[in-house]
Design a protein around this nucleic acid. Structure first.
Length: 537
RNA sequence: GCGGCCGUAAUUCAGUGGUAGAAUGUCAGCUUCCCAAGCUGAACGUCGUGAGUUCGAAUCUCAUCGGCCGCUCCA
C-alpha cells in the first residue's frame, strides 16, 4: 500500500472516529448491531447538515426569481415508476456463475456461433454490448487455426449471436469467463417495496422513491398552473430518497437512505445547452465557494458513450475522497424524456404554450393574411399553435446533488491536523475542522477565562444575547481555556469569545480565530456583529 | 454478491481457556489571566449477537449482524 493511500485511509478512520466521538454521525440502530447502509446524524451533525441544506436553499431557491420549490411525498402512485423506467425497463435481470462467482447482466452475455454451412467453426460465450462486438470478442478467443478458417470462409461465414436475455425461460447458459453453469436470471430491483393500506397483496405494492426528481415531474403541470411561472424556470426540492444498494460502502457515501437536493430546470429545447452550461458551472462553483477549493474537486464531463439513454449531456462534480474520486452532484440535460414519458403514461398534456410569443405573432394568422378566408386562417393558426415554436415539450436540466455526500466531502476537506503551542510553548498536534463558517454547527463559543471574579456572569450575558440574535452560540466554563479552545476547534467553531480580567475594566473581550489562532479585542457591545460580519464575508 | 482482514469503555487499542485492562476523552472539585498532557477524586463494559465445545470462553468452533480492503454493482 502506498503512503498516500495509507494516509488517506488514516484520514477516513480518524474522521469516522471524530464524528462518532463528537456526536456528528452515528451508525443507525447501533445498539442492535447496526444496519448496513443507514446512518444517523448526531447533535452537531444535524446542525452541519441543516446548514448545508439551508445554504443550498438560500442560494438556489431564495436567490433566484425563476426557481420555486416543492416538497413531494416519498411514496407515490406506482405508475410513476413505470413511466420513469424504474420498474421494468432498467431493473436488469442478472445471472451468477456457479463456478467462478462472476455476475453478469443477461443482456451483456452473448453466445456466438460462426459457421460455414453446417460446419461450426467457432462457438463461444462472451461479454458484449451488441452483435458486432460479440463476434469480435468471440474471434478474439479463437486459436490461430480457427481464426484462419474463419478468415477463409469469407462471405460464406454465418454469424449467429444470441444474447442470454433472449434465451427461453428455463434454459441456462454457460459462463463467458470460465464456462461454468449460470444461475437462472434474477431481477435486481433497487427500489424499496412496501404496501399501501393494511392489505398486503400485489395490488397494494408501492415503492419508496429512488429519486426526488419524479415527484417534480409529476407536479410540473400543477406548478406551472399555479405559480405564474413561465419558461425558463426551475423547481427545487430537498428530500429523502431510498435505494436498496447491493453493497453500501464508504461510510455515508453510498447509503440506502439518503437525501437529495435537486433542481429540475425547465427550458426551451433551443436553450437547453445554454442552461446546462449555466447550471453545471454554477453548481461546481458553489462547492468551490464553500471550501472545496482544493485540487481535490473536479468537474467531469461524461463521454457520449457514458450517457444514459435519455441524457444529451451530463457532468459530474467529483471530489477526491480518501477512498477515491466520487460524485457529489450530477448535472444532466435530460431532454424532454421525462415529461414525454409522463405524458404518455398519464395521458396528461405536459406541453408548454408560449402565449406571449403567440400574442405578438397571432396577427400573422388573421383572415386578411389568407385572402379573407377565415376558415383557412383559423386552420393555419390552430396548426401553428400546436407545434414549435409556440407549443412544445420543455427540456429539463437537472442539477442533482447528494446532501450526505456533500456533507461528507466538506467534513473530509475540513479535517486538518496542524501544530499549536501548549501553555509551555511546546508545539502540539491540533485537530481542527476548518469548515466554512456558514456550515459550522456552532458559530461562536463564549468562555470566561476563569470561573470566578464575575467573569462567568458576563460571559453568560454575551451568550444569551448571541442566542437572542439568532447566532448559534455555545457557553463553556469548564477546565483550562486552552482545552476549551481545542474542543471547539475539533467541531469547527470559527470564533471563540473570551471574557477576561481586562473585560472588567474596559468592557472588551477577545475574539479568537479558529484558523489563525489570532485574537482581537472587541467591545462587548460590538462582539455579535463583529462575529457575524466575519462569518458572512 | 464474492474473497481477505476485523469487531473488547465515548475514542484508539492491549488482553490466546482461569477475577476485563491502558491511554486519551468525559464528569466533580482544586489550580490556572489565554491555547489539551498541573493536582485530587469519580463514573463508564450485553468483550457485536446467538448457539456449541468446556468444570470454566473476550480467548476455541459454527452461524448471524456490522465494519474495512480488493473485485463486482451503481438505472
Amino acid at each position: 500500500m502506498s503512503d498516500a493511500k495509507k494516509d488517506s485511509g488514516d484520514l477516513m478512520e480518524k474522521l469516522v472516529a471524530l464524528c462518532k466521538r463528537r456526536g456528528i454521525i452515528f451508525q443507525s440502530s447501533e445498539i442492535y448491531g447496526g444496519i448496513g447502509g443507514f446512518w444517523d446524524y448526531g447533535p452537531l451533525g444535524v446542525e452541519l447538515k441543516r446548514n448545508i441544506k439551508a445554504a443550498w436553499w438560500e442560494d438556489v431557491v431564495r436567490a433566484n426569481d425563476n426557481i420555486v420549490a416543492l416538497d413531494c411525498s416519498i411514496i407515490m402512485n406506482p405508475k410513476v415508476w413505470e413511466a420513469s423506467g424504474h420498474v421494468g425497463g432498467f431493473s436488469d435481470p442478472m445471472v451468477d456463475c456457479k463456478e467462478c462467482r462472476s455476475r453478469f447482466r443477461t443482456d451483456k452475455v452473448a453466445y456466438v456461433s460462426l459457421a460455414k454451412g453446417e460446419n461450426v467453426l467457432l462457438a463461444a460465450a462472451v461479454e458484449a454490448d451488441d452483435d458486432p462486438e460479440a463476434v469480435a470478442a468471440a474471434i478474439a478467443t479463437a486459436n490461430s487455426k480457427a481464426r484462419r478458417r474463419i478468415e477463409n470462409a469469407g462471405d460464406e461465414l454465418t454469424k449467429t449471436v444470441t444474447f442470454l436475455s433472449a434465451i427461453p425461460e428455463g434454459e441456462t447458459g454457460s459462463c463467458p469467463k470460465c464456462g461454468g453453469e449460470l444461475t437462472e436470471p434474477r431481477e435486481f430491483n433497487l427500489m424499496f417495496q412496501t404496501y399501501v393500506g393494511a392489505l398486503q397483496d400485489s395490488s397494494a405494492v408501492a415503492y419508496l422513491r429512488p429519486e426526488t426528481a419524479q415527484g417534480i415531474f409529476a407536479n410540473y403541470k400543477n406548478v406551472l398552473d399555479t405559480s405564474r411561472m413561465k419558461l425558463p424556470f426551475g423547481i427545487a426540492q430537498i428530500g429523502k430518497s431510498f435505494r436498496n444498494e447491493i453493497n453500501p460502502r464508504n461510510y455515508t457515501f453510498r447509503s440506502r437512505e439518503f437525501e437529495q437536493m435537486e433542481i429540475e430546470f425547465f427550458c426551451h429545447p433551443d436553450e437547453a445547452e445554454k442552461w446546462y452550461i449555466h447550471w453545471r458551472d454554477t453548481r461546481y462553483q458553489w462547492y468551490v465557494d464553500h471550501g472545496l477549493q482544493s485540487d481535490k474537486l473536479h468537474l467531469r464531463d461524461h463521454d457520449p458513450d457514458e450517457l444514459a439513454h435519455y441524457a444529451r449531456g451530463c457532468a459530474d462534480v467529483e471530489y477526491d475522497f480518501p477512498f477515491g474520486q466520487a460524485e457529489l452532484e450530477g448535472v444532466a440535460n435530460r431532454t424532454d424524456f421525462d415529461l414525454k414519458a409522463h405524458q404518455e403514461h398519464s395521458g396528461r398534456d405536459m406541453t408548454y404554450f408560449e402565449d406571449e410569443l403567440w400574442k405578438t405573432e397571432a396577427p400573422k394568422y388573421t383572415a386578411d393574411k389568407f385572402d379573407g378566408d377565415k376558415k383557412a386562417a383559423k386552420k393555419a393558426a390552430e396548426e401553428a399553435k400546436s407545434k414549435m415554436p409556440y407549443r412544445f415539450t420543455p427540456f429539463v436540466i437537472e442539477p442533482s446533488g447528494g446532501v450526505d455526500r456533500a456533507t461528507l466531502a466538506f467534513l473530509c476537506e475540513a479535517y486538518t491536523e496542524d501544530e499549536a503551542p501548549d501553555e509551555k510553548g511546546n508545539m502540539q498536534t491540533r485537530v481542527v475542522m476548518k469548515l466554512h463558517p456558514r456550515f459550522a454547527p456552532i458559530k461562536m463559543a463564549v468562555f470566561p477565562l476563569v470561573k470566578k471574579d464575575g467573569l462567568p456572569e458576563i460571559a453568560h450575558e454575551i451568550h444569551n444575547e448571541a442566542k437572542a440574535a439568532g447566532m448559534a452560540s455555545f457557553y463553556d466554563e469548564k477546565g483550562a481555556v486552552g482545552r476549551r479552545y481545542r474542543r471547539q476547534d475539533e467541531v469547527g467553531t470559527p470564533f471563540c469569545v473570551t471574557v477576561d480580567g481586562q473585560t472588567l475594566e474596559d468592557q472588551t473581550v477577545t475574539v479568537r480565530d479558529r484558523d489563525s489562532l489570532e485574537q482581537n479585542r472587541v467591545p462587548i457591545s460590538e462582539v455579535i456583529s463583529y462575529v457575524r460580519q466575519r462569518i458572512n464575508r
